[in-house]
Design a binder for these strands. Structure first.
Lengths: 337, 337
DNA sequence: GTGAAAGCGCTAACAA
DNA sequence: TTGTTAGCGCTTTCAC
């Protein structure tokens, strides 16, 4: 069923049907009614591909995410969907399986799918990313990571880490270990959160001790392993641990619990991300909450604005966060605060 | 940059470039190289919209889900993405916010976007769903719900519920309450799981007692409320509770814990879904695990097969499940089994 | 082995 | 107010 079938059935030309469909141009009330009747009867709806080709507008944006099966990503995508839906945009989704190199493939692929803008949730930006993004003549907004010269919306990882470590220091902790990740392309987590950790130490005149730092993976098991190493390899034990993600923190707690080391009295623990689990660990985990739904909304609105008003999206925008203090750092909260 | 630009730069016609691009028809090695060189230099990739219009093939499928920000949906979509990616299909995603009526809108909308098949994760099927799906001349595979005459892949909700309730009965429980939901359109959860519950009672010659049944919402709070009512309104208290979802079960446990009623000795609790939280409640919750990643893979493979081989997808396919027995029904597992 | 031309389903400028 | 026509960027006969 296509426009000329409707035209034939209604006894008019294709252009007239098109006018009725799009409410454009002149068409007499009588003919409009007749055409509309045929459209309603047949349930006809125009082929969007043909329309897109003609209009040079697909009303589609691309979203590149590292993985879908993740609490945070799901929220971000949900928010993006809702914005898009409101504005009449469709979403073409790509998934990189946490592979920063695949992000580049996806950028190109979506571009050739004629998307009008791209939301890139990156796990690591390289100069090639920048080169490709610059070569695409559609707006691209990056989140998750930040790089000078690109338009990025990202969490204020450095200050979040700093605030968290400061809180521990203010609770009397003096030897706070750092459990980090060793993903080289990553800046937001590995670099920024470590900088925040060091900022906090510097602020309180505590010397940075490389013996209290370990690098591992994004897993609970890796957290347990790093914690065990730090504990066993240091004569003077740490009295606190800052893990760059909640999963790692939960892993660290598993070691401490197993060794019957009191949390937080002997060793406080804090993570980042407010993972669903962190509320239910024993003790509950102090962490930083980022607002992914809000982030998704902000970037999508900005992207669509940028598409429709042909404004260049630029600048690095830091999104605010909340520190969630629970009993893993503060005895006050011990009774499930 | 389009095909005729490449043609001009290479000093050939557009058809020749097209042949090089698609490895079709005859083209001399010499010209092929020259054209390829221009393509590589310019980074040209054909406009997929134009190609789709010509080919009448978009290599795109639609996915309709009730919400993205959900553990189970995320897994399903992740699996679908991976299958699609392998087979060269793209995904156009729609989200209904749990509104069964919106599923119909999305079906139509995706159809007019020229998707070649649709995966519908439904929260409730009506005869209108069936009418629309039948009218679309592309394969549609339904999951989450089942209806005669449509192609459905769904969890074996009835038997899962039956098995779970049987387990409780075999542990000596005799008055098992049912916490259900009151969503009318829903069949899989409300109807099938209740049927399974009744099957189990019947199997053990236990009479169904409507006083032990309540209907509420898909929330923890609703679980607490229903449990409270059942407890207070029954002279002879229940000694077990089967909740149709883990969230409701967790809500019920909150009431029991608050009232210092021993779980599972005084009252056992079981849910369905293996929510991430259910492992961490105290006591850990006995539940049914469905395999969403496998489900997503199965339906997507079937859908693509159906598209490519023009076979009609049909039948109701039940996906298997695992019972996860934890300490909320079985003291044996008390030490975090 | 290569190019010209038609056509995918739609819209919009122009003619009537 | 309505219809005719050209063209969006590509592929694919069909001639050469």
């Amino acid at each position: 069923m296509q426009i000329k079938d409707i035209a034939r059935l209604a006894g008019v030309s294709a252009s007239t049907v098109s006018r009725v469909l799009n409410n454009s141009g002149y068409v007499s009330e009588e003919i409009r009614k007749k055409v509309q009747a045929v459209i309603d009867e047949t349930g006809y709806r125009p082929n969007q591909i043909a329309k897109s080709l003609k209009d040079k507008s697909t009303k589609t944006i691309g979203i590149i995410i590292p993985q879908i099966a993740s609490e945070t990503m799901a929220k971000l995508v949900e928010a993006a969907y809702q914005c898009c839906n409101k504005k009449g945009y469709k979403i073409l989704m790509e998934n990189t399986q946490l592979d920063s190199q695949r992000e580049i493939e996806c950028l190109k692929s979506l571009y050739h799918q004629q998307v009008e803008g791209i939301l890139l949730m990156s796990v690591g930006l390289s100069s090639e990313h920048k080169r490709i993004i610059d070569s695409l003549n559609i707006p691209v907004i990056v989140t998750g990571q930040a790089m000078e010269g690109l338009c990025c919306y990202t969490h204020d990882n450095r200050n979040a880490a700093k605030d968290l470590v400061c809180k521990m220091i203010e609770c009397g902790k003096k030897r706070i270990a750092l459990l980090n990740v060793d993903i080289q392309e990553d800046d937001s987590i590995r670099v920024q959160r470590e900088l925040g950790y060091r900022d906090a130490l510097a602020l309180h005149n505590i010397e940075f001790d490389p013996e209290l730092v370990r690098y591992g993976k994004f897993t609970i098991a890796s957290g347990t392993e790093m914690m065990e190493k730090i504990w066993n390899e240091n004569q003077i034990k740490p009295d606190g641990v800052f893990a760059v993600t909640d999963k790692i923190a939960i892993g660290a707690m598993r070691f401490l619990v197993k060794e019957k080391i009191n949390i937080p009295l002997e060793c406080a623990v804090a993570g980042v991300g407010n993972n669903k689990l962190s509320e239910f660990t024993d003790p509950a985990l102090t962490t930083v909450e980022y607002h992914y739904f809000e982030l998704g909304t902000a970037v999508t609105e900005k992207l669509i604005d940028s598409i429709e008003n042909r404004t260049k999206a630029e600048g690095i925008h830091l999104i605010k966060y909340d520190i969630i203090e629970r009993s893993s750092t503060n005895e006050q909260h011990s009774c499930n605060g």
